[in-house]
Design a protein around this nucleic acid. Structure first.
Length: 833
DNA sequence: GTGATGTTTCCTGATT
DNA sequence: AAATCAGGAAACATCA
């Protein structure tokens, strides 16, 4: 513990609402990532300050963990007088996105708790009522080292600079810190700034440093503890709101919870979900869902709600990501793996397999399956334009049928016939391989634009993200990626997602859950593992894992595709999902795989059945003309559906064909003209006596492995397949050159230093910090979800010849812009400004 | 339609 | 062992 109470740079400033908001505004306008600093500041100030940061500060960090820890820290320090009885704890999962310069705050679990005793300080990290337990909880990886836990992420550079919070283990060195040469107050060692320290100037300087590229790198290896000028330090104020702020009492603990709103928010309904932004936006009831902001007392918090920081950002869409800082590596346990932040996890994923990259970065916000409180934050710009409201649903509050967005579905989903197909995996584990080419879709009710609920092995239902296409879901970090594939086709990351999903659903103690033992296990491998083997990896929960996995393996249920007349008029998937949920209001909620099995057989391909590429996988008993589109047609359908999902015009009544999982794709065997016709398909179902028609297609098992034709080198021909894909794409973004994108990303404090960082900006030397994450960003820019660092790096290497990049010998992931490229980048920036 | 340019995809092999 | 690097080859995307 630090010997003296830290004086927080922003604390006193935040005690003056106008000043606080001004600072925050400034930070926001600069798109500045304050990292932990702001939250730290917010957390140690009074409720008044928190109310400011509720709307503004979250943008800066999203790292509630440090806030909590700082609260803990301060409460533990009897000399600290900064607290009174009204402490608001900003929970994690706060994301703020910046759309058109207007703040949008968006959080899955905005828990505003208050307490008048330290023991009730909410921490949904560990769900502990005891503050002391927080630091002792082994599952909490994020505590500052001065609390006795080494797993703590250092603040960002800007946070270090602008915060006087002592981070003993977070040093600045020449590779991480650049100061703008001309700023006097930053040219010196920050620790020597003393009374000259000015948070405004600090912010300004950092922003300029980040955005202008006019740097001088200096070396400093000292740990940073910027002394705050005594003149600015002051103790916290009372719990009551100052005249300039109105007060909102939160629902769960009205006696103590109080949230001070900027005066502009006065009159807003106290129990409605709000976004607070006193200066650039107003607060109103959300028009769509009517969800309420729920304030939760500590006891209200689900035990597992914050087991992982939820990455709710959407970098692929060019939006701000949340600023969760990854836990630091290197203490014997790979916390990047534990982290549900895909950025943090990407390292772990990299170690797992490159084929799991597609889910490294979410494309859409989606609540964690276990997230309980719904939150829908609505922000309005000054011109009353609603800003990209994102909703997170309560389990019981999905899109209501008949809402303005959905017409009522005439057919409730539970009336659909379901078919239970005994999984061919229900045999002893070694048999799994015999059916390895099974390509089934688990994605059969939601379709594009709809979420899904899943059952992690018959556990419980899950909240369904209401937005995003199926592909979004797969890509997102909502732990549902495994639902897209048959267990035997799970990648190692699918396995991890399932494990974490299971853990969350069952409320397993993450501190004891050794999911990392399955880090390199694919679904097939898991399929082959005996109970003993699983238990040997995970002694505590191994049996449970085994049982749940067997449940999934053997309990695959497919639903019959709906005929057109069963579809909602406008094909609103949300309606269907809502109905599905509403009609499954029992304890087992809307589980597409858990419906009562039916003896009904799958009807022949109901058009517009998206058939798999033929001649490989027509559903058994189906003729090619009905079902068999060419691979190109199938691709068109796929692409068309993607577009539909993107536009919200959802075409209904079809299964999703799992292209990703299709063993046909890139499988020379499949394109063998000698392959039997679809109807002749010989793959066997476990119950061959009563073959059923399902969207689950079989092909001859690849075992014993056949001699596969070697693929010809080069990019495969997919002529005419991308016509649809072209539509609607942002040409400008799409045509951006890779090197320009890289440079732009480097200049963006949202991604630098988290994804990319300068090694020497003046020289143009930079390094990939999270190579796959950058690749995904690039892929997002180009609407190419299959982008990998491997491919990106190939494109980068082409630049060597063209004189855009220069080789940096001996250093992995390090590249260097040529002078020519740097000049061009400068020129471009100059022209654009 | 064509060619140029800039990737993208896949590959083999080497290096770290 | 896996990630990364290097670079060939070919296909694709876009633009002029």
């Amino acid at each position: 513990m630090p010997s003296a109470s830290p004086v927080y740079a922003f604390s006193s400033a935040l005690n003056e609402p106008d000043t606080a908001l001004a600072i925050l505004d400034k930070a926001l306008s600069m798109q500045l990532d304050l990292g932990n600093a702001h939250m730290s500041a917010a957390s140690v100030t009074s409720d008044l300050s928190i109310s400011s940061s509720t709307s503004r500060g979250a943008r800066c960090s999203g790292d509630k963990i440090s806030a909590t820890n700082n609260i803990h820290h301060n409460l533990s320090d009897p000399s600290n007088q900064l607290f009174d009885d009204n402490i608001f704890v900003m929970d994690e999962n706060i994301k703020v996105e910046d759309h058109n310069d207007v703040l949008m705050m968006d959080n899955t679990n905005l828990n505003i708790a208050s307490s008048n005793s330290s023991n009730n300080i909410t921490t949904s990290i560990s769900n502990s009522n005891s503050v002391d337990n927080i630091s002792n909880n082994s599952s909490n990886n994020y505590l500052p080292s001065f609390l006795g836990n080494d797993e703590f992420s250092c603040p960002t550079t800007s946070a270090l600079l602008c915060s006087s919070v002592p981070y003993p283990d977070c040093s600045m060195d020449s590779s991480t810190i650049s100061y703008r040469h001309t700023h006097d107050h930053l040219t010196a060692d920050p620790s020597q700034l003393g009374d000259s320290y000015d948070p405004f100037k600090c912010l300004e300087s950092i922003a300029e440093q980040s955005l202008t590229g006019n740097f001088t790198t200096i070396s400093s290896s000292s740990s940073l503890s910027v002394p705050f000028p005594s003149s600015m330090a002051s103790s916290s104020t009372s719990s009551s709101c100052p005249p300039s702020l109105s007060s909102i009492r939160t629902s769960s603990s009205p006696s103590t919870s109080q949230m001070c709103l900027p005066s502009s928010a006065r009159g807003a309904p106290s129990h409605d979900l709000m976004a607070l932004n006193s200066q650039s936006s107003r607060v109103e009831r959300c028009p769509r869902g009517g969800n309420s902001l729920e304030s939760h007392s500590p006891s209200d918090l689900p035990s597992n709600v914050n087991s992982f920081p939820t990455h709710a950002g959407n970098p692929l869409a060019g939006q701000m990501r949340d600023f969760f800082s990854c836990p630091r590596q290197g203490s014997g346990f790979d916390h990047s793996f534990m982290s549900r932040d895909p950025d943090c996890r990407s390292r772990g994923r990299d170690m797992i397999s490159s084929d799991s990259i597609s889910s490294s970065i979410p494309k859409s916000s989606a609540s964690s399956p276990s997230s309980s409180p719904a939150a829908s934050l609505c922000m309005y710009s000054n011109n009353n334009i609603p800003i990209n409201t994102t909703e997170y649903k309560l389990k019981s509050q999905h899109h209501k049928a008949g809402s303005s967005h959905c017409k009522t579905s005439p057919q409730s989903s539970n009336q659909r016939e379901t078919i239970k197909v005994e999984s061919p995996f229900n045999q002893s584990p070694p048999d799994c391989q015999n059916y390895s080419s099974l390509s089934c879709t688990f994605n059969n009710i939601g379709g594009r634009g709809g979420g899904r609920s899943v059952d992690a092995g018959g556990a419980v239902g899950a909240a369904i993200p209401n937005q995003g296409s199926a592909f979004d879901l797969e890509d997102s970090d909502n732990l549902l990626s495994w639902t897209f594939h048959h267990p035997d086709h799970w990648s190692s990351s699918n396995v991890l997602d399932w494990l974490f999903y299971l853990a969350q659903d069952l409320g397993l103690d993450m501190g004891q859950f050794r999911a990392e033992k399955f880090q390199n296990i694919t679904g097939r491998q898991l399929c082959r593992m005996t109970q003993e083997e699983i238990i040997s990896r995970e002694p505590k929960f191994g049996q449970l894992i085994y049982q749940k996995f067997q449940h999934i393996r053997t309990g695959v249920i497919f639903k019959k595709p709906m005929s057109p007349d069963q579809l909602p008029e406008n094909g609103c998937m949300q309606t269907m999902i809502a109905n599905n949920i509403n009609n499954n209001s029992g304890s087992h909620m809307s589980n597409p795989y858990n419906s009562a099995p039916s003896s009904a057989t799958c009807s022949p391909c109901v058009q517009p059945y998206p058939c798999p590429p033929t001649p490989c996988y027509p559903p058994p008993g189906m003729s090619r003309p009905t079902c068999g589109g060419s691979p190109e047609e199938a691709f068109f359908e796929h692409d068309r559906r993607s577009n539909i999902a993107a536009t919200g015009n959802i075409d209904m009544g079809s299964y999703e064909f799992d292209f990703i999982d299709s063993p046909c794709i890139n499988n020379p065997h499949c394109q063998d003209p000698s392959q039997p016709d679809c109807s002749m398909y010989t793959g066997k179902l476990p119950t061959q006596a009563s073959p059923v028609r399902t969207p689950c297609y079989f092909t001859a098992p690849p075992y014993p492995p056949q001699q596969q034709q070697r693929r010809r080198p080069g990019r495969p021909k997919v002529k005419h397949l991308v016509e649809d894909a072209r539509r609607g794409r942002d040409k400008k973004a799409k045509n951006q050159h890779l090197w320009e994108f890289i440079h732009e990303t480097l200049m963006n404090p949202l991604y630098n230093p988290q994804y990319l960082r300068w090694e020497n900006q003046r020289e143009g030397v930079f390094r990939f910090v999270q190579s796959e994450a950058v690749a995904q960003l690039w892929g997002g820019r180009k609407n190419n979800e299959n982008m990998t660092y491997e491919k990106l790096s190939r494109a980068m290497r082409h630049y060597y010849k063209r004189g855009i990049l220069e080789r940096v010998e001996g250093r992995r992931l390090v590249y260097k812009f040529s002078i020519k490229a740097m000049d061009r980048a400068r020129e471009k920036k100059h022209n654009s400004s």
